[in-house]
Nucleic acid binder design. Sequence first.
DNA 1: AAGGCGGGGGT
DNA 2: ACCCCAGCCTT
Length: 311
Amino acid sequence: MLQQTRVAQGIPYYLTFVKSFPTVHHLAKAKEEQVLKLWQGLGYYSRARNLHATAKFISEERDGIFPDTYKELIKLKGIGDYTASAIASICFDRPEAVVDGNVYRVLARYYGVELPINSKEGISFFRELAHRVKDVQNIKDYNQGIMEFGALQCTPKNPDCNSCPLHNDCVALATDKVAVLPVKTKKTKIRKRYFNYLVVVDENNSTLLQQRIGPGIWQNLYEFPLLETDKEIELEEVGESLKGIVAVEAPFEVYLYNENQVVHKLSHQHLHTRFWIIHAADKLENGIRISDLHKYPVPVLIADFIKAFKI
DNA sequence: AAGGCGGGGGT
DNA sequence: ACCCCAGCCTT
């Protein structure tokens, strides 16, 4: 749950999850839609789908017994090097060293390692370094300690090296490289996309919702019928494209809900979004009551609209 | 080996 | 704006 996510952001989700799914069997028996709903807003939704799939596997194929070695753990969906090491060491006292973003930073600075942490060579180097310097006498506290040390003391920006208990031996501090370590190559460039959501409203206050299918963002989450274009479009074009997307008989009324585009920012895409309200005179075939929209797992972009939308 | 995949918080 | 977060998966 915490992969690429701050602990503080994940905690409320964790609490809701363990309350809703007290055992792996409860999670295994849940509908994916419920799992995604509880995950809504946390992002990286493949984690939720993988967690669910692995719960099914553990419950149905292993009688609820979790593997207790790195070698077996890493075979599970959604569990990579870090998570397999974390579970094996913290839960089962196995001598595995975790390497997360915090550990990369602490090791890179303390040992003055300038290999990029996102290169093949860097990844294997840091992994071996972490295993060489780990403390197997108390592996769980060591692993959690070095991660916490990175989060609280050896921070990405402006670490307070004066107060650091390791400042006598830190290579980065001695060579004035604290600010440039760890090294990370290339930044992802951001793609602009133009989303036009078609919010159809009929006389029953029902609307249309559809599930996104992969590949791409928000797999298996719900959204309004979408007209994606390669640039901004105007009312006329929406009216023309409308009938190919939603089954609405004329006459209908279309208007723009948000005069200013909502720019929803993902790590790698900026979604320039407009919501178009379409009042249909007839009754929708597969309409969903607007008052029921809150039951569906949706991206934050859609959740924010639903929250603000008053007919 | 590189890129896709969210959303929020800090600077 | 840009960076980072108890990373993993697919191509």
